[in-house]
Structures are given as structure tokens and as C-alpha cells.
Simulated scan of single mutants.
Amino acid sequence: MAIVGAVALTVATFGAGAVIGAAAVGAALGAIGGVVMTASSDLIHGEASSPYEYVKSAAQGAVIGAVCGAIFGPVAGIGGGAVVPLTGGQTTVGLGSAMFMGGSSGYIDYSLRELWDGRTPDGGKALESFALGAALGGAFSVGSSWLAKGAERVNGVLKRGASSRVEGTSQALKIPQGLTKEQFEKVSAMIREKVGHLSDDIVVQGSRAKGTAKPTSDIDFAIRVSPEKFDELIKDSFSKVKPPNPGSAKEKTMLHAIETGKIQSGEAKLSKFREQLQQELGMDVDISIIKIGGPFDNPPFTPIK
């Protein structure tokens, strides 16, 4: 009944779709694990289990994997989540959660297997399973974070190379569409004076740089920064005093900024400056901090003067 209640709580919290997806992933991994465990036992003891034993192990693993996946998968983002590199206290909380979920999953996995085979779970072995699961969960969390950051850096290098090639083909206008040379020089000076300390790589991107803008299109100024600098600015913008409360609107905004690689003008404390640029140019303006290699780092670029 406790397991049924836990699954019901997960469904209520994350929705049936997320739970079903996580359960399916857990069932597949559990079935594979059951077969691997039987094969490993055969190799160690020099035995050859029957096909029935392999099918039984796969079925047992699938059921247990589905239960563990349904309970813990949605929390970890399995079956539809995304790996998002976090910073500071968020990383610590994530590691602790992963260890707890790994330990709980190991505890449940051991208990269910013992009950399946008609044995009473041993308390000491159940705790050993919890400890092993916690260790594996923590290792997986750290490894996933390293992989995510590594992939992010590789993607950034590739995008920077692509960006330089596109800029070299002169696909971007030298003066953004809809601006005179005098206007562009004046706002360029205003921008460098205001945010030049953040980066010397400030560009116009989007339709005004491509020459495909409509009369009502805005002009997009991007303050391009390295991934390392972007992480620093995330902390300054959202958690300089203390990390945002879990589940709060501020935390959701921070996580969105991390995922998209873009700090909006409001979070970057540039709202009033954006209004000044709009008054100067007579058009809508977007000025944001963009992580080099991120989803919003899109050439061609027109560098400001």
C-alpha cells in the first residue's frame, strides 16, 4: 500500500505522462539489469541458467524498475526531463536529492526482490542497498553535470567557429536595417559606456542584422560573454545575497536563463537603459546578455561601433 501511495503522489505531483515515461524507462533498464545479473551469476558459478530463468529475471527486473521509475524518475527528470547545468547551492541540492533517490531506489529494489522470491527482507542488507544506491546516485549526478558542462563547452567551440565563418562571409549588414550611420554610432557609444565592462563583444543580431526586418521589428543587442562569465552573471543577477527559494518564480526565471543561455534586460538590471535606447531609436529594443555557444547566440552579427 505504501508503494501504491508513493506512485499516486508522484502522479498527482508531476502528471501521468511524466510518470508513465519514467516507468517505461525504469522497466527497460530493470529488465536489462535482471538479465545482466543472471548472466553474471552464471559466469561466476560456471552455470547455465535456462531460458525460463532469464525471462523470469527480465520480468522481475522490469516490474521493479517500473515501480522505482514511477516513484523517483519524474523527480530526476527521467522520461522527458533535460539535464540543465546548475550553479552554487542548486548543485548541492541536486546532488543530495540524487543520492536520496538513488538510496531509496536501491532500498526498494532490494526489498521487492526479496519479497518476490518469498523471503523476508533483511534490515542490514536493505541499508547496504540504500548506501550503494546513494553512492551510485551521487556519482551519476556528478557525472551528468560534468558531461553536460563538457558538451556545453564543445558546443560553444563549434558555434564560435561557425559564427566566425558566417561573420567572415559579410552576411550581416554593416549598419543595422532601419538605422542611419549617425544613429548607430550614437547608440553604440551609449551601449559601450553602459555595459562595456561586461564584454567587448557586443553585437546586433536578428532581422535588423540580416536585413529582413519589418517596420515593426525590434532591434536585438546581444552582450556576448563566455560560459564562465555567464555563470558569474547568473549568480550576480539571481543569488548574489542568497539562492532563490526552491519552486519560487525567481528560481524558475533563473533556471530558464541557464537553460536558454540568455539573461533578459530586467534580470540584468538594464530595463531603464533599454527604454533610453528605445527613445533614441524610435523602435522597440531588446538588450540581453547572451552566452556564447548558447541557444540564442545566433549569427549573423553586426558588431556595434
Rank of each mutant, 00 (worst) to 15 (best):
E47A: 09
F140N: 15
V19R: 09
Q171Y: 00
S40R: 09
K149E: 07
S145G: 14
K214R: 15
M254G: 09
E267Q: 12
V55I: 08
V55C: 05
G106T: 11
R208K: 03
Y52R: 12
T87C: 02
T10Q: 03
T260C: 05
G89E: 09
A98T: 06
L233R: 05
Y54K: 12
E259W: 11
M99I: 12
L86C: 11
M1H: 03
Y107P: 08
A59P: 12
W146N: 08
M101D: 05
P51D: 06
I20E: 01
G94S: 14
K159T: 10
T13A: 04
T120W: 00
K250E: 07
G17I: 03
A172R: 04
G156T: 11
S141D: 11
A268C: 06
V142P: 12
L198R: 09
P74C: 05
G168V: 05
G261S: 12
S144L: 05
Q276F: 01
E193Y: 08
Y54R: 09
S50K: 14
I234V: 13
G123A: 15
V195G: 02
Y110I: 03
A6S: 12
S170D: 06
F14H: 14
G15M: 02
K291C: 04
K262F: 00
D286A: 14
P176C: 07
A162E: 04
I258Q: 12
M190N: 13
A59L: 15
G206N: 07
G30K: 06
S199V: 03
S288A: 12
G77S: 11
G17N: 13
E275F: 03
K214D: 15
A28R: 03
G124W: 11
V241H: 00
S217N: 09
R119I: 00
V11S: 10
A39K: 09
G133C: 08
F140V: 15
G61A: 04
V7K: 03
P244I: 02
S163V: 10
V4S: 14
F140L: 10
A139S: 12
Q171F: 01
I3N: 02
G30A: 03
G178D: 07
E53K: 13
G211S: 08
Q278F: 01
Q276K: 13
R165M: 00
